[in-house]
Design a protein around this nucleic acid. Structure first.
Lengths: 126, 126
DNA sequence: GATCATTGTTAGTCATCGCTAACTCTTAAC
DNA sequence: GTTAAGAGTTAGCGATGACTAACAATGATC
């Protein structure tokens, strides 16, 4: 039972949009991720079938418990990686984009080691 | 003109095998990367067509100047990322695997910032 | 009430990058 | 000299994940 990288990205974006706007529709996801409506529709169908989201009668998208867990994990990684890169002097936009790619690949062991490194104040403070 | 992630991996492995054995054949690449011979054959065909490698009359694989440049860049990233993770206490095998995934994704800016961070001795020395 | 914009869907295509099956070619063994 | 092993290739398939084209349903505008 392996969750695809793109699914992780979609779940993370659903969580981010929910925080920003209070609700999430497919069209918002498409705009935020710069993909087309059919791409989102197809992805949401998969996420529904795998139990990560539900959609109400007005097509508003809600995370299930499982979806919430995946989204939160990736979102946490994203923020940690982004803050780490920015603490090294990387521009916000680039740090955001790099974090978005790396967040899927880093093993649990490496991510935790990096968290520990950051907690020790090793990267220079702002 | 974008080079694919898998092409970068193949070029890097060609350079590593050349250092280890002194020569490189398709079958060695297949064994080293745990992929099948047809997968390597197909990849080598693409690399030839794009001018990254040549193959002599005995099918030994040689990097062109362009191929050498790509391979060296990725190899350098791999080693730097791996050493960084190991300096944080990550096991060698996991550091190797994580570096192999991240090496393609990190922007030039973030990689250089990380190099600078390492030079300053920020990660704890062994 | 006809028209248009918005939202979502289905159907079909394409690129990347693996795979298996089946083939050729060369070289070594008996 | 036939057979077997090793190396490389082609053909065709499957998963992932994007795309365009075309259609359905809802709501707002005139």
């Amino acid at each position: 039972m392996h969750i695809h990288e793109s699914s992780e990205d979609y779940l993370e974006m659903i969580m981010m949009l929910r925080e920003q706007k209070g609700y999430v529709r497919s069209v918002d996801i498409a705009a935020a991720l710069s993909v087309t409506k059919p791409s989102v529709s197809h992805a949401m169908k998969q996420l529904r079938e795998n139990g990560y989201i539900t959609m109400d009668e007005e097509n508003y998208i809600l995370l299930t418990v499982a979806g919430e867990a995946v989204a939160r994990r990736i979102y946490q990684r994203h923020r940690t990686l982004m803050e780490f890169l920015m603490s090294l002097g990387v521009a916000e936009k680039i740090a955001y984009e790099d974090a978005c790619k790396i967040e899927h690949d880093l093993s649990e062991e490496s991510f935790e080691a990096l968290c520990h490194h950051i907690e020790q104040g090793n990267p220079k403070p702002q």
